[in-house]
Design a protein around this nucleic acid. Structure first.
Lengths: 359, 359
DNA sequence: TTGTAAGCGTTATCAA
DNA sequence: TTGATAACGCTTACAA
């Protein structure tokens, strides 16, 4: 008999399904979770009863009995960042597919308190995308010791035992970016960094330097930096680009910390009366949506946000299921668009003239 | 004896605290939850033991035993919208203060599935900020019937029994906005709407019409609209403003669905070679951060996002604690900035000239 | 192949 | 003022 399930206050319990199907309540569990194979006939009966009663297992009870809470957490310092938002969406979507749910936190404020909350709620895994300034390594260990799988990002480069990290292959990525510019004939390539020298966890600047040394044989390439607290914005991209143009007039191509900064840099270049890619080539990182539609479309190191988010889920999921941890390298791919082009031939000339004038 | 709490795999349980304090485990519960007052001496002992063992009650067990999950959910269609993001942050922050956690969902895709997830997880309350196109009224009732407190927004104006809604006082807000423009001498005021006439749940357009009738004695004021699916963007603001300028050359002041649209409108006005507020006055809604810093600073109907988010929490919290529902009206306040000014005197003239030319 | 029953860590009811 | 003890709804040995 199809029992009306919507009579307020009464949840359908597993036992109800068992009764409806004429089996024991454990059998229902086995069938629904696929823990044991039973006779097809019984399985059929259980599934039908489940449908008829519109039964849905209670996750809270399930969590208490089992060891998993089917809950993940993500901690970041800028939810508002478009790229992060894509990552979040990707993670969410993938999690939902697997009956997981994800708690999103702004890591500002009292991180210690959040951490305790997560432990109390027995979160299964957590992805931390913040600098150690916001969530210390110690806190990460606390999480780990509470049996929560922890996954970190390039946003901190501290490698701790039994804590997973995933890292885009920035070394390879910068090799691609610098290589691309070299092929186009650029000899003076600069980097706009959101982070300064004292930021020990930034890998991008280091990767840039390595690529420049290997490919251009240059040990002290032109770099301009932001300062603590490190945040990226078009405004910062603009001001750093202005600084770059003033301090390093030879530079004909720049790579920026991310697309947002690169878009800001392009604005500054135009404000200076220069053209892209005629006078300056610009490369970003992330491949956010806007990069394909801005003018000119931005050449960038791709790391599709949604996909990255989905990857986060799978790493954490795998870590939880198999009780392991690991180090994961994610490949990057250079997407060539119209913000990069052949190095200007005349630049050398113009520069030397003005230099002469001022000397 | 201070027991090391970080010995992997072993959670501190309430019983451990009881033993440590030399009381029964129920006593611990009473003290920690303040359910009953006990002798100060005993309370003291319990608190100390709690500290020493670094005990933290398990939320999952607590949820199973009690009726609350200490979890809220929020469903929206555009997480990426800056204003929504502020609201989310405000809600989060307030929730965290009260030991609540909030699940954030993008309502795209299979809403029905999400809803079931929320029921299975026994979420205590949910704030729904989407048009009925994405989450039907029926689904809302399903939630309600599963004993989840539901709170909706102006984003749908369907009023259902035992479902709370909160609504900014748009009628009063538009009275303020139109009144302000009237005082400045504007006689032709237009509205840029993200929603069209067929969008039955939009209250802003209706509020605009009422204010225009009451204050300006105008029954068919100039309105240009977006189309389904309704989303707001600077681009839309721009194109609607262009349309407004073409179709209604008399208009000297516009109000837009929100600040983002208003900022787009200002761009269009400048592209048309006009000045703000000399030629056009512009009013937005929301008072997002950018509105204070854009050029010129935008006059707007304030509804501080963070505060709005905090309000959402308190309504839901109150509904949960006292098992009630209600209708909540949130006041709006006009923030006067430099995007509005006296109506241009010469407009009438210029227009008639061009009209003469074309006729 | 199926059913029984012992947890999981709380809250809450009722005696003591 | 305290302390047992029965739910809460599920998972999972282990027994049948």
């Amino acid at each position: 008999m199809p029992v009306k399930p919507d009579s307020r206050k009464k949840r359908v319990r597993r036992e109800d399904v068992a009764r409806e199907a004429g089996v024991s309540s454990a059998t229902v569990s086995y069938v629904l979770n696929g823990t044991k194979r039973l006779s097809p006939e019984v399985e059929q009966r259980v599934w039908e009863a489940t449908r008829r009663l519109n039964y849905m297992p209670d996750f809270i009870a399930r969590s208490l009995a089992g060891s998993k809470s089917y809950t993940l957490a993500l901690m970041t310092t800028d939810i508002a960042n478009v790229y992060q938002l894509e990552v979040i969406k990707g993670l969410q979507a993938e999690a939902l597919k697997h009956d997981y749910v994800v708690l999103i936190f702004d890591a500002y404020g009292d991180a210690d308190k959040y951490i305790n909350r997560l432990i109390a709620r027995r979160v299964d895994g957590i992805f931390v995308s913040t600098a150690p300034d916001f969530i210390s390594d110690e806190l990460l260990c606390k999480l780990r010791d509470a049996d929560i799988k922890v996954l970190t990002d390039f946003s901190r480069n501290s490698f701790m035992p039994d804590i997973s990290y995933m890292m885009s292959d920035h070394y390879d990525g910068f090799m691609q970016a610098v290589g691309h510019l070299k092929e186009l004939g650029h000899t003076h390539i600069g980097y706009l960094s959101a982070f300064d020298e004292s930021c020990y966890y930034d890998v991008r600047l280091a990767a840039f330097r390595i690529a420049m040394r290997k490919l251009m044989n240059e040990t002290v390439p032109p770099v301009v930096c932001g300062t603590w607290p490190y945040t990226t914005s078009e405004e910062l991209g603009m001001s750093l680009m202005w600084e770059m143009m003033e301090r390093y007039p030879d530079v004909t191509a720049v790579i920026a910390t991310n697309d947002i900064m690169a878009i800001g840099a392009m604005k500054a270049i135009r404000e200076a009366g220069k053209e892209i890619p005629l006078d300056y080539s610009v490369v970003g990182i992330d491949n956010i949506e806007k990069s394909a539609t801005c003018v000119p479309p931005l050449t960038t190191l791709d790391q599709d946000g949604r996909e990255y988010g989905a990857r986060i889920f799978h790493i954490l999921y795998d870590n939880i299921m198999h009780d392991t941890t690991g180090k994961y390298i994610i490949p990057m791919r250079l997407v060539k668009r119209e913000s990069t082009g052949p190095a200007p031939r005349e630049r050398e000339h113009v520069i030397s003239v003005s230099e002469t004038v001022f000397e």
